[in-house]
Amino acid sequence: MRTFSEYLRDMFSGIRSLLSGLSITWKELWTKKVTRQYPENRDTLVISERFRAELVMPHDENNEHACTACGICQINCPNGTINVISRTTETEDGKKKKELDRYVYNLGTCTFCNLCVITCPSDAIVFSNNFENATFTRNKLVKQLNHEGSRLREKKPIKKAGNEAEKDSQTA
């Protein structure tokens, strides 16, 4: 008899739990839908700042960037995505100087690991939020990041104490 009452108890507790499950899905049926309808909501689309969509090199209003063509990003990239092509020029006082010629970035092979951005000593590159990167051919994924005719941003001449200079370069 004991087992029979257990049998009944089992059955009714089972039914109760089924009903509570049904009630939860019933509520879910009426909740606000979370789907974002992408091409239509382009204007109101919110994308997190941290989202890594595409590597870019910010230029300022004088068409100047911060890349010294040191090649550290290229060395650190695990996929050979970055190709820093430099040229040597002479300054007015006759000194030879390495300068960025072309900064080639292949979006197609990038894994968005962010190593290049972290290791860049000059903070010359960042990841942008522009995620609409689809193209019809793979060649279009190879991009040149420095603009045409851009130059290295000259640092303010550092004539202060070493301590302060270090601080300066960190905040820059």
Binding site: E28, L29, T31, K32, K33, V34, T35
Partner: peptide
């Protein structure tokens, strides 16, 4: 099904 999963479904 989509409504039960808080989606919109085919649209």
């Amino acid at each position: 099904t989509a409504f039960f999963q808080a989606r919109i479904g085919p649209n």
